[in-house]
Design a protein around this nucleic acid. Structure first.
Length: 547
RNA sequence: GGCCUGUUGGUGAAGCGGUUAACACACAUGCCUUUCACGCAUGGAUUCAUGGGUUCAAAUCCCGUACAGGUCACCA
């Protein structure tokens, strides 16, 4: 049996590797264009970290005039869940993360497919055969128990764990031994015949982490599992080579596998792509940093932000400031520019894990919402309420124009209000504008608390000074006149200079009106509120107080 | 335990041999203001985990220590 026959005896494939090398020609792209990929396993819902790396991958490709694609890594059938792929695609699309190529809801798109690993079995086998022919891979008959036994011995002797050197028993099997075992029906997997020396270090440069020195891999890692599917490492090398990936962008938990991957590319005669290992988003617990965990941390789930009512765009802005800290500065200097114009840079990405800063997210979200038009705020707030607060949603819908006007108070101007950070808090901020909800149990009176004085203020103002169609200036002048008449200072300056000469200030006076109408002492502009409420409701609410 | 990586104010983070150690968020104070929010101004690291070394000069370069993170599967 020659080596070709031997390889064919061990692994069957329809085509040989040359067929696939020809089937997927090199991509013809301009200098500097990146081909990136996002390659998740369909094991559950998309979480923040996935959103983060997929965003970086797609944006990097786009800004360099390259190509991004989505590849599904489902070589572990046990962990894949139904519908996992659809959820990934849909969730990412909500955040405007769309790939140029790869798996889509309508099937594969692009010339380098299939893009789902479970459909690429023959391709992997073809390359496994290539390695066997070149004596770079061999079958291993060790059972799980054998492996465990060795592992325990290694641990007991404090030796390095794994299948390497003298521990790599099956590596020494002759071709005849192998043929006999196979003919006896013994099960086997295929391992890489590593030529690395753990005591030799090689230089490696990561696009994000920079230069480092790593030991060569000397583990005879598994490349083809007993189920006939490849391991991650092998599939990664074959796929990214065939698909023409120029930049492998992935989580930094992969950094320690680099020796394996570099070796794999070498032994397969593949050109090594560049690697960018993205640091995780962390959270602090008991004074220690740890990666955001899907199971423990609610904020790891994308749904968390959705339920809270934080706009998707705001979340992306937040992720982009984590990705490149200079993005924030750029935004400040390019207030009117589209964030898409900002160019992400690997060199600016954080090297250590970044702590998830909720306050910062809130601040970004506030700023983002403050720049929206009232109608946009209405649409988004309504969309949120339709899902999470149906009663409020129907109220918003019933008074659509009115609600939009409420959102418009102090909004479409140079320095808009920044009081909405997320849509779940909207109701708490404007409920008093709706008669259906206005039924205060407490009035937040401030400096003026005396019942008769409150009545006095309200009566005086309402009867003699409130004019329904005043513009803002006359409205405030009337307010001042009423205040002065009752012994309040009409100007804050005067009051501050001689507080003892007055009952209080115009601020105290208008606060009484404000609280009477809204029950709250902190509200947006009173004039606007009164204008929206209109005379009848103003009277009604004031009467309600005095009863 | 082995291998790799990191450690700058409350948080994120700039800095890459000579700076008053940027900036943003948060916090505090003041101003503006009918409240709140906005805006504006000011304040906070005598010091860059720690101990050595190199240098006229170190947060920046080198070595040790501590702490933290990642990884060591027929999982990705």
């Amino acid at each position: 049996m020659n080596r070709e026959e031997y390889a064919d005896f061990l692994v069957k494939s329809e085509h040989d590797y040359k067929y696939y090398e020809n089937k997927y020609p090199k991509r013809d792209l301009p200098e500097g264009a990146m081909v990136t990929r996002y390659a998740p396993s369909p094991t559950g819902l998309v979480h923040l970290g996935a959103l983060y790396t997929s965003f970086i991958s797609v944006k990097m490709a786009k800004q360099s005039g390259g190509v991004s694609f989505l590849r599904i890594e489902d070589t572990d059938q046990k962990r894949s869940i139904d519908d996992g792929v659809r959820k990934i695609i849909e969730d990412l699309a909500k955040f405007d993360i769309n790939f140029d190529e790869g798996v889509t809801l309508e099937g594969d798109k692009g010339n380098y497919g299939p893009y789902t690993q479970s459909e690429r079995g023959d391709i992997y086998k073809a390359f496994v055969k290539k390695l066997i022919i070149e004596d770079k891979a061999y079958p291993c008959f060790c059972s799980e128990d054998d492996l465990k036994h060795d592992h325990d011995r290694q641990a007991a002797n404090k030796e390095r764990l794994g299948y390497y050197g003298i521990w790599a028993r099956c590596r020494r099997l002759s071709m005849d031994d192998v043929i006999e075992k196979v003919n006896n029906g013994e099960k086997y997997i295929i391992r890489l015949k590593s030529r690395g020396n753990f005591n030799h270090h090689f230089k490696f440069k990561d696009e994000i982490k920079g230069k480092m020195e790593l030991p060569e891999n000397d583990q005879d890692i598994v490349i083809l599992k007993s189920d006939g599917l490849p391991t991650y490492h092998f599939a990664h090398a074959v796929d990214d080579h065939l698909m023409g990936t120029t930049h492998v962008i992935r989580g930094d938990e992969w950094l320690s596998s680099i020796p394996v991957h570099v070796q794999l590319f070498e032994m397969l005669d593949f050109e090594l792509p560049k690697f960018a290992h993205v640091s995780p988003i962390c959270i602090e617990e008991d004074g220690k940093k740890r990666k955001l965990s899907k199971r423990k941390d609610p904020e790891a789930a994308i749904s968390f932000y959705h339920e809270k009512g934080i706009p998707n765009k705001a979340l992306m802005l937040f992720l982009e400031t984590i990705a490149n800290s200079n993005f924030e500065m750029w935004m400040l200097q390019n207030k009117d520019s589209d964030p898409d114009e900002f160019k992400l840079d690997f060199k600016k990405m954080p090297i250590g894990g970044t702590l998830f800063d909720y306050e910062k997210l809130i601040s970004i979200s506030k700023n983002y919402i403050s720049k929206l038009k009232a109608t946009e705020v209405y649409d988004m707030a309504f969309e949120w309420a339709s899902l999470y607060d149906k009663d409020f949603a129907s109220l918003m819908e019933k008074y659509k124009d009115y609600t939009t006007s409420i959102f418009n108070i102090e909004r479409e101007q140079k320095k808009p209000r920044k009081d909405i950070a997320y849509f779940s808090e909207v109701k708490d901020q404007i409920w008093y504008m709706y008669d259906e909800l206005f039924n205060p149990s407490v009035y937040e009176w401030q400096n003026v608390t005396d019942k008769s004085e409150i009545k006095n203020v309200l009566d005086t103002y309402l009867n003699d000074y409130y004019k329904e169609d005043d513009d803002k200036d006359s409205w405030f002048n009337h307010m001042k006149e009423a205040a002065v008449k009752l012994g309040y200072a009409g100007e804050m300056r005067e009051y501050k200079d001689n507080p003892d000469n007055y009952k209080g200030s115009i601020a105290d006076f208008s606060t009484v009106v404000r609280v009477a109408l809204t029950s709250k002492c902190n509200t947006p502009d009173l004039y606007e509120i009164m204008r929206l409420l209109g005379k009848d409701r103003i009277m009604m609410r004031i009467n309600k107080v005095t009863v």
